[in-house]
Amino acid sequence: MAAVEAYNITHRYGKVTALDDVSFTVDDGELFGFIGPDGAGKTTLFRIAVTLIIPSGGRMTLFGLNTVNNYRELRNLIGYMPGKFSLYQDLSVEENLNFYATVFGTTLKENYHLIEPIYKQIEPYKKRIAGKLSGGMKQKLALSCALIHKPKILILDEPTTGVDAVSRTEFWEMLSGLKHEGITIVVSTPYMDEALRCDRIALIQSGKILGINTPDNIRRSYSQKLYAVRYPDKYKLLTSLRSLPLAPCPMPIAPCSEPYTLSPEPFGDSVHITLPEGTKPEEILKALETAGLPGATITEIVPGIEDVFLELMKKDE
């Protein structure tokens, strides 16, 4: 049985449409990620899933239970971690855990084994007030609290936002550990690199799902060959690539029906471009040299999630 089934979910806040006809399924035991920029509708979708919002249209079920009608039963099955740290900052680590355990009619002892790998890391600070924990520790505590009642599904809204890189890696390792325990995990993130750790991802933008697939398939769905161009002055490189005679399209994201677009996009230390059919990479270097950028390099690369995302976004527009 599917863990989550969503059919044509639509949600409006007044005139603003936050979610527009969203459908998807999450399999039992899957680690499913929603990838999208801020304001894409991830939080609204999650709040519907955890029975906090009644959607304007469509329906969603978790383990066959409807989020609107069966919310009472559902609340026992869901472990939810909102995007904002929302535990009691004036209670200690231990008190928070005990409190949430009691809320769900269980005890810390009973489900200790489940949270042990995570909780052990913050246990030395169990007497500390939650408000005085570091970001990474807060996040571990929040995860422990979301897990304390042995939920069948974890719903984590941007759990790694505002957390340092080391803690982020640690956190994803914890999630894979939980996945092995058989817990279904639905997670959202604005970080594309985290998407690779999911079984399947959904790309979401402006309330619409652009595509759902495994990270590998998503990357393979990129329609063209992709090249990375490197040059010390990246800004100069980007503007030059945009104005090369080959690329009549001045804006990177603007709709452009011209076949000769390079679609330059800045990525880390390089700019990603696609080449028009029949153009060789060397021609680009030559063009750059005449434009006053000698010594630039170009290499073919495997498209990342972000490349696909940007391509899909442009298509959508």
């Binding site: 909102p82 740290f85 535990l87 949430y100």
Partner: peptide
């Protein structure tokens, strides 16, 4: 305001 009510609201309380 600090969001704890959201966390409580998803519990069976």
């Amino acid at each position: 305001e600090i969001g704890t009510s959201e966390q409580i609201n998803v519990t069976p309380v």
